[in-house]
Simulated assay, not measured.
Amino acid sequence: MYTRKNQLEAFNRLLDIMDELREKCPWDKKQTLESLRHLTIEETYELADAILDNDLEEIKKELGDVLLHIVFYAKIGSEKGAFDIADIANSISDKLINRHPHIYGDIKVNNEEEVKQNWEKLKLKEGKNSVLEGVPKSLPALIKASRIQDKVAGVGFDWEEPHQVWEKVQEEISELNEEIKNKNQEKTEKEFGDVLFSMINYARFIGVNPENALEKTNKKFINRFQFLEEAVKKEGKELSDMTLSEMDVYWEKSKAYFK
């Protein structure tokens, strides 16, 4: 691995390249904070995919892309006279020190949960009006639900035992089934949302990240279905001409390859 000196040299090289690109490249010169936003979101999702695939080489590449965006935003910020890369680094360093009084102060903690509780309390002392202010409005709903539950749990608003949460899941499913029977679409949607919210909460209690779990299932389904498509194609058949029971034969075979 590189020494700290080598790491700083590599980072300085990236800053120099960014300065040069911003000055000489027509595309880079044209970019704004707003024009980069959707590209940053895309890069973040690509990093998330690489992490789920446990592809360390791809993770390295995607982290480079994300780092480039950070440096790019810092460069634009410096041009506006608003902030530069040093401001960004110092800001997060100050925050980390302030949010870790058990490391940089005299606060004592016994476990991870106490660290999280202190974190949320410190944010309120810093001027936030609600522990939920830090949840981005544009987060996908599943991730947002998970973050909401994490944050309120951090200030003690939480169930005590996993079985209580599972009972709540069952209660919400019963209410959903009742509205389905009543054929009330608006209330059915509401209750379905409650089921999802309670399931995401239960996932936290059993140590499962719901976003990761669902994405792994998505990937498994894609792999199995594409296996089915390829197997059918090799036999000169068309899916549209097959019955569900005929497709199930190939689907069952796919499970041996993608578990």
Rank of each mutant, 00 (worst) to 15 (best):
Q7K: 12
L8Y: 12
A10D: 04
F11C: 04
L14T: 03
L15H: 07
E20H: 08
E20F: 09
K24S: 08
P26W: 06
S35G: 03
S35R: 11
R37C: 10
H38Q: 12
T40Q: 15
L47D: 01
A48S: 15
L52T: 09
L52H: 06
L56D: 07
E58S: 03
I59F: 05
G64F: 06
D65A: 10
A74S: 13
G81T: 03
D84F: 02
I85S: 08
A89D: 02
A89C: 04
S93G: 10
H100T: 15
P101Y: 01
I103N: 05
I107E: 13
N111E: 06
N111I: 04
E112G: 00
E113N: 11
E114Y: 00
E114G: 00
W119S: 10
L122P: 03
K123P: 01
L124T: 00
E126T: 01
L132H: 00
V135W: 06
K137P: 02
L139W: 02
L142G: 12
L142S: 06
I143C: 05
A145T: 15
Q149D: 14
D150C: 10
G154A: 14
F157G: 02
D158G: 08
W159R: 13
Q164E: 15
Q164P: 02
V165D: 01
W166T: 00
E172F: 01
K183I: 12
N184K: 12
Q185T: 13
E186G: 05
K187S: 15
K187D: 12
K190H: 09
F192G: 09
F205R: 00
I206Q: 01
V208T: 09
N209V: 09
N209G: 07
N209A: 08
P210G: 11
K219I: 01
K219G: 06
F221N: 08
F225E: 13
L228E: 02
L228K: 07
E229Y: 00
E235I: 09
G236P: 04
K237H: 00
E238P: 01
D241P: 05
T243P: 04
E246Y: 02
M247I: 14
K259H: 11
